[in-house]
């Protein structure tokens, strides 16, 4: 290790310097432990040599301090979890959504060339069998991961309790919710099951509802 990254927050004035030489420190590794003044080199994490990535990381951290405002409230997180669970449930195409392919399964069309992967890289990709979440986990530290993830929740009106000034309230569009009876899909103007909160439109539907759906 000849070059190391200057810790971002250590020195505000020297924010334009990304790297510093540490040749002198690493040249005498055995004595470092005895020397109190020298920083513990061994603890240094991986070094990112990509100047571009560093710059975007820095820009991003500046941005987030200024604009993104308060963190998500716990209510917001619950909401996102509930809605995405519902969406996932509906997106399933049947009770079983996945199955294992038999080993070395190949189509009849290309029997001649069935080796999995020409290069080590593609071999790895073609036998990965990973799901989306594991990729998300892996990319947790990615600069743009928040903008990718938040796309999924753009349709939820964000709770903004901390900065709910009058101005915000004015901008908010109000649209009446459509309330449909859970049995017959008529408009349900006023009634809602006191146990589970689903809508119903008439006493008859409520009776059906309590016999079937209410739990």
């Amino acid at each position: 290790m000849f070059v190391e990254e200057v810790p971002k927050k250590s020195n505000a004035n020297s924010s334009t310097i990304y790297f510093t030489s540490s040749i002198n420190l690493t040249a005498r590794p055995s004595r470092i432990n005895h020397d109190v003044d020298v920083q513990p080199v061994a603890k240094k994490a991986k070094i990112n040599y990509n100047l571009n990535d560093l710059m975007t990381a820095q820009l991003q951290s500046n941005d987030s301090q200024q604009s993104s405002g308060p963190l998500k409230s716990s209510q917001q997180i619950t909401l996102e979890r509930l809605t995405s669970k519902r969406l996932l449930d509906l997106s399933k195409e049947g009770p079983v959504t996945n199955f294992e392919l038999p080993k070395n399964y190949e189509s009849k069309n290309n029997s001649k060339k069935n080796k999995q992967g020409n290069t080590p890289g593609t071999k790895k990709i073609l036998s990965a069998k990973r799901n989306l979440n594991s990729y998300f986990e892996e990319e947790r530290n990615l600069v743009s991961i928040n903008s990718i993830l938040s796309l999924n929740y753009q349709y939820l009106d964000q709770y903004d309790y901390l900065s709910s000034s009058k101005k915000n309230k004015k901008e908010k569009i109000f649209r009446p919710r459509i309330k449909l009876c859970c049995i017959c899909s008529n408009v349900s103007n006023y009634a809602r099951c006191h146990i589970c909160g689903l809508f119903f439109c008439s006493i008859r539907c409520n009776r059906v509802h309590q016999e079937s759906r209410c739990n």
Partner: peptide, 16 residues
């Protein structure tokens, strides 16, 4: 609204 796991948070959210 008419999902089995109904929750008051969802009821008070407005959707875009």
């Amino acid at each position: 609204d008419n999902s089995p796991n109904n929750n008051s948070i969802i009821h008070s959210t407005s959707f875009k």
